[in-house]
Computed example of a mutant assay.
Amino acid sequence: MHRPPATYQVNGAAIRATRKRRGLGIRETAEAAGISRSYLQRLETGIRSQMRPPAFAALRQTLHAEESELLVPHEET
């Protein structure tokens, strides 16, 4: 059975770019995703880079984004 990771390593710049591309403000995005404005701001600026699955899913849904769009890319070896 597939389990989601304990946390997701998110790409703050991608979150910000996606939010702006959708024409959303930081406050309205945070409210719609059920997270605080300051938490979203810390994610976007890279101060924080980990999100728990429920918060990540809510943010993805709010931004209408695919999981891969908001995560730090994995390097292929």
Rank of each mutant, 00 (worst) to 15 (best):
S38M: 08
P73L: 00
K20W: 02
G34A: 04
A58N: 09
I35K: 08
Y8A: 06
A17C: 14
E69W: 07
E75Q: 06
L59T: 03
R19K: 07
N11P: 00
L43V: 10
R21E: 11
L71I: 07
R48Y: 11
G23Q: 01
R27S: 09
Y8K: 03
E31R: 04
R42A: 15
L71R: 07
A30V: 03
L24G: 08
R19A: 15
S68A: 12
G23R: 03
A65F: 07
A65S: 14
H2M: 14
S38A: 09
E69S: 08
L24D: 08
R22D: 15
I26D: 02
E66F: 03
E75L: 09
S49V: 15
A65R: 03
E66S: 10
R37H: 06
T62A: 15
E76Y: 11
M51T: 04
S36R: 04
E31G: 06
N11I: 04
R48W: 07
P53S: 04
L71F: 08
R22S: 15
H64I: 04
H64S: 13
V72C: 15
P73E: 02
G23Y: 02
P73Y: 00
R19N: 14
Q61Y: 05
A58V: 03
T77V: 12
L71Q: 06
E66N: 11
R37W: 07
Q61G: 12
N11L: 12
E66R: 06
G46F: 09
A58Q: 05
S68R: 14
I47K: 05
A30L: 11
E66I: 00
R42T: 10
G46P: 00
T62H: 13
H64G: 04
R48E: 10
A58C: 00
L43Y: 05
R37Q: 03
R42Y: 15
E28N: 08
T62V: 14
L63A: 05
R60D: 13
A65L: 05
S68E: 12
T77K: 09
R27C: 08
G34C: 12
A14V: 01
R16L: 08
P4R: 09
G25A: 07
G23L: 02
G23N: 02
H64M: 11
R42N: 12
K20M: 10
A30F: 02
P4Q: 10
A57H: 00
E44Q: 01
G34H: 11
A65T: 06
P5Q: 01
R3Q: 09
H74S: 10
A57N: 06
